[in-house]
Each structure stands twice: as structure tokens, then as C-alpha cells.
Amino acid sequence: MPDAITLARFNESHIEGITALYNDPLITRQVLQMPFQSTEVWRKRLAPDNERVVQLVALHQGNVIGNLGLEQFSRIRRSHAGSIGMAVAREWQGKGVGSMLLAAALDVADNWMNLRRVELSVYADNEAAIGLYRKFGFVEEGLFRDHAVRDGRLVDTLSMARLRSMPQT
């Protein structure tokens, strides 16, 4: 992977890049976002300053090439868990950007948020993403049949989670 890739916490200067990333038709069909979202939609979605939410961007020469959001659940009885969602620009897929983002997010989840469980959903036919998640210890927990509309059809998604062993006291 090129050395010029850096990770940063999302800020206002990344809005245009995030909007472009998620409006790429090949990206839109692999995430649960609607196409043709405005920068204002993304500004509102990413604006809340909440320490239970970590939004990371991968940058190459200042341009957004990936995004990962990690959110700790706010309900008391689910506060040991969080969820992630991510996207990597198609020209950067398979080049380690997703691994960089996921490793950084899981470090925060483990060492700063003390999460025991991190979960996600992924389209059941997205083999590359499923492979990436497995590499980081995620396992399939269930299949959601006809879970989301994509390309005018109902398609399946997988529920995946990674459980971290907690130190014995």
C-alpha cells in the first residue's frame, strides 16, 4: 500500500469527499445508503459531536478514499457493543485501505471504548468485504433474507460480529 495514505478523524473539510465516495454507483450498491445524497445530508449525518461515535477517513493526497464509522450503542444494556459501517473507493479496493480503517477502528473499540462486541451487516454476495471482516475475526451470525432493496430486487445480508475476550480479573 502506498505510504501516502493517512487516517484522520472526519471533519468538515471531508464532506465533499465523503459525498463523492458514497455517490459512486458501485459504492452505493454495496452500502445501505441512497444514491444522489447531497453534501448537506452528509453534513447533518456526520456532524454530531458524540464521543460514542468515531468517524474515520482514509486520505490520499488529501482526497477521501475511504470512510469507516464506529458507533457504541447508547442503551445501557448494549453499551458493551457497537457497530461499524464502511466504504472504500473502488480504485482503492484490495489495496489495504479497508484493513487500515478496520484495524484503527478496532483499536479504538478495544482500547478506548472497551467494547466486547462489534457488529455489522454486509450484503451476502459481497465476498471481498466478507473476507476482510473474517480476516479481523468477524464471524457470520445470521442471514437476513430479502433485507434490502438493491438494483430493484430484494437481496440478503449477513449479520457478522467480532467478540473480544475480556481479561480475567
Rank of each mutant, 00 (worst) to 15 (best):
P167Y: 14
Q55W: 14
F136S: 00
I5E: 09
A47I: 10
Q30G: 10
L21V: 04
M1V: 12
T19R: 06
S13Y: 05
L46Q: 00
D107A: 15
N126H: 15
S159G: 01
R134L: 11
V31S: 01
T6H: 07
V88Q: 01
R145Q: 05
V97Y: 08
I76L: 12
G94M: 06
V155M: 14
K95Q: 10
S38I: 11
A47D: 08
K95H: 13
A103R: 13
R45G: 04
I15K: 02
R52V: 08
A20V: 02
H14L: 03
A58G: 10
A103H: 11
G96D: 10
G69P: 08
S83A: 13
I27H: 14
A124M: 02
A89L: 06
T28N: 02
A58N: 01
R52A: 15
V41G: 11
L7F: 03
A81W: 04
R77Y: 10
D3G: 14
G82K: 03
A129P: 03
P35Y: 04
H14P: 00
A109M: 07
A87W: 04
L143P: 00
T6A: 08
I27Y: 11
L115W: 05
D49T: 12
R52T: 10
A89I: 02
L59N: 05
A124W: 06
G131L: 08
Q93Y: 09
R145I: 07
I76K: 15
M34K: 07
N114S: 13
R150A: 11
A89Q: 06
E91P: 09
I130V: 15
F136Q: 00
M100N: 08
Q30M: 15
Q61K: 12
D24T: 04
R43K: 15
Y123S: 05
R29I: 12
H147K: 10
V31Q: 01
G82S: 00
L163H: 07
M1A: 12
A161L: 00
V53Y: 07
M166T: 05
V64L: 04
T6C: 05
L120I: 04
I15S: 04
Q61H: 08
V31C: 14
S99W: 12
L7Q: 07
V57T: 03
V139T: 09
R117A: 02
D49L: 10
E51A: 14
L7V: 12
V139K: 02
G94F: 15
T6R: 06
N50T: 05
R116P: 00
F136L: 03
R153A: 15
L70T: 06
N67H: 14
D151N: 14
R90M: 14
Q72N: 00
L143V: 12
V155T: 12
T6W: 08
E140K: 06
E40I: 11
R150F: 06
L115P: 01
M1G: 09
A89H: 15
S13I: 11
